[in-house]
């Protein structure tokens, strides 16, 4: 049926794709290379890709010592992991109920979920700030976690996945003696692993990189998340210190890149095949 395209076309196709990939990757590569350069090379007028003098040790030591970067990373892990666990523990049962149980007001409830998807997070940030203030949670982990503990997107994503799980599987579980909660956690969740992994990546990336909300609710550097920590290198009186800044940025994104590579296979499955059994 399909003839194999000619060599020329295949070469062309790969060139186009590769140049696209290069454009996407360029900022990352630039960040990596800058983190290896001494200050005078960073500020030269001509563009040099490869550093002439390696400044790796100096930049990275500076990044790790000038600010308590390890503490910020730890804060980031505590916050993102707690947010993710909260989101899962709420989204999965809710999604199960919306997808598989029969009750009055189900359609209205799902419409409400869809409606919440449309609300931009910035629009509710002031009410949330006031709420956090009322609770006395400002400048704490609670302020970082509470507003994100329910993910409407997570509910929606899991609900769509659960819709594809055949009813017979739930019937079988009920006959076998699973309680409804056991069905949620022991039958539905394991079948929904691909969807859960993709949701996990979305959630963790979003909250790891979040700059806006932590900036609003935090004062003391004790609770700083990594993106806030990075700012220390910019606001210094000495001016911008790009070498250590880029080194710190590299350190901050490393866990994400690592997690993505580990989950990559399942992540892509989750996006493209989540509708198929």
């Amino acid at each position: 049926m399909n003839r194999r395209p000619s060599l020329l076309f295949r070469l062309f196709r790969h060139l186009v794709l590769m140049s696209g990939a290069m454009i996407m990757l360029m900022p990352f590569i630039w960040m990596l290379l800058t983190s290896l350069k001494p200050p005078d090379e960073i500020f030269t007028s001509e563009l040099t890709l490869w550093p002439q003098h390696w400044y790796f040790v100096e930049n990275y030591t500076e990044a790790l010592t000038r600010i308590p970067l390890m503490k910020f990373l730890l804060n980031g892990i505590v916050v993102t992991v707690t947010i993710f666990l909260c989101q899962v523990s709420i989204a999965v049962p809710v999604a199960y109920a919306l997808a598989k149980l029969r009750f009055k007001g189900k359609k209205t409830l799902f419409a409400a979920v869809l409606f919440c998807l449309l609300i931009p997070p910035q629009a509710v940030s002031i009410p949330w700030y006031l709420l956090m203030y009322q609770f006395g949670w400002l400048d704490s982990y609670m302020a970082l976690i509470a507003p994100f503990s329910i993910s409407v997107f997570g509910i929606f994503l899991m609900r769509q996945f659960f819709m594809t799980v055949p009813n017979d599987l739930i019937y079988a579980a009920r006959i076998d003696g699973f309680s409804e909660l056991a069905i949620v956690w022991k039958v539905m969740l394991p079948t929904a692993m691909p969807a859960l992994v993709s949701f996990g990546i979305f959630s963790i990336v979003a909250h790891w990189n979040d700059y806006f909300w932590p900036l609003i609710v935090l004062n003391s550097p004790d609770y700083y998340t990594p993106p806030l920590g990075l700012v220390n290198f910019r606001n210094d009186d000495t001016g911008n210190d790009y070498g250590p800044l880029m080194a710190a940025a590299t350190i901050v994104i490393t866990p994400l890149v690592g997690a993505f590579l580990l989950a990559q296979k399942r992540f892509i499955e989750g996006i493209t095949f989540s509708g198929m059994k």
């Binding site: 055949p166 599987l169 019937y171 079988a172 009920r174 006959i175 699973f178 039958v187 394991p190 079948t191």
Partner: peptide
């Protein structure tokens, strides 16, 4: 009685095995 208390077992068209 709930399904599990009726002491019946059922085989489904789609087999409904636990995939994991």
């Amino acid at each position: 009685l709930r399904p599990k208390d009726r002491n019946l077992s059922m085989v489904f068209q789609s087999y409904a095995l636990y995939p994991h």
